[in-house]
């Protein structure tokens, strides 16, 4: 019923850059935002998740407050908060480009979700393991480092995969602060070329491919580190 016309992809936007070239840059931006945001989310999420399982009530409180704050504010509002508010209150952030602010916002938002997964992962390890390691004379730090975390890390890998895919999807909110990633491309090029269906199709396809790549990577990682005779470890 519709005839698709892809010729816009080879048209020039400015200078020598074509819409196709712009599309590839936009895809790269989406992947870069997601990659850096995931590193922030993973580091802070893991730390906060671990804090919430310790026996120290202040550490637990810090982890809980962190998680509640970043989980209960919509990601788009957090992006606006980092873009409009934080640089005005803390001038040190005004030197950062919009790109970095969006990465921080997305990273902190996702860290609260990862913290939940990590907490649940550690709590699902039988408490015997914690007690056994303490009985063997390990300090709290050592029991986490050598007993709990190596198991917890493998346990939370599958949910982390879906968080990694979520981060790619959620990176689309960066369009709201005019970062030239895929969704921004979709909105902008749809207006410029009036080839909405084609533009959206190609952008959606790139989101699919990105999710597929993450999925493939995680299958490889999971296979290489799975624990024999444990949940997820079949051999």
């Amino acid at each position: 019923m519709f005839t698709l016309d892809w010729s816009f992809l080879s048209k020039k936007v400015v200078g020598n850059q074509t819409y196709f070239g712009w599309l590839m840059t936009a895809w790269e931006t989406t992947l870069t935002i997601s990659f850096f945001a995931f590193i922030i989310a993973f580091t802070l999420g893991f730390l906060m998740g671990v804090l919430r399982t310790t026996q120290n009530k202040y550490l637990v409180l810090i982890g809980n407050i962190w998680t509640e704050i970043f989980r209960n504010i919509p990601v788009l509002v957090q992006v606006f908060l980092w873009y409009f508010v934080i640089p005005k209150i803390f001038p040190i952030f005004s030197k950062l480009p919009a790109f970095a602010l969006a990465v921080i916002a997305l990273g902190l938002f996702t860290s609260s979700r990862i913290s939940e997964q990590v907490r649940a992962g550690i709590q699902s390890i039988p408490t015997d393991q914690r007690y056994a390691s303490l009985a063997l004379g390990l300090t709290t730090y050592q029991s986490y480092r050598f007993v709990l975390l190596p198991v917890a890390f493998r346990l939370v890998l599958p949910p982390l995969t879906s968080e990694a895919m979520n981060i790619i999807k959620n990176s689309s909110v960066a369009f709201a602060v005019s970062i030239a990633e895929l969704t921004m491309y979709a909105i902008q090029v749809q207006e410029e070329t009036a080839r909405g269906i084609e533009v959206y199709l190609v952008v959606t396809a790139l989101y699919f491919i990105s999710a597929f790549i993450v999925n493939l990577l995680s299958i490889l990682i999971e296979k290489s580190i799975q624990i024999p005779h444990f949940i997820g470890g079949r051999k």
Binding site: M165, S172, T183, A186, Q190, Y200, V203, T204, Y207, A211
Partner: peptide, 14 residues
């Protein structure tokens, strides 16, 4: 589930 919600919003609107 594999399309960003913002894209779904744009798709339906289009």
């Amino acid at each position: 589930r594999s399309i960003p919600l913002v894209m779904v919003i744009l798709w339906v609107f289009l």
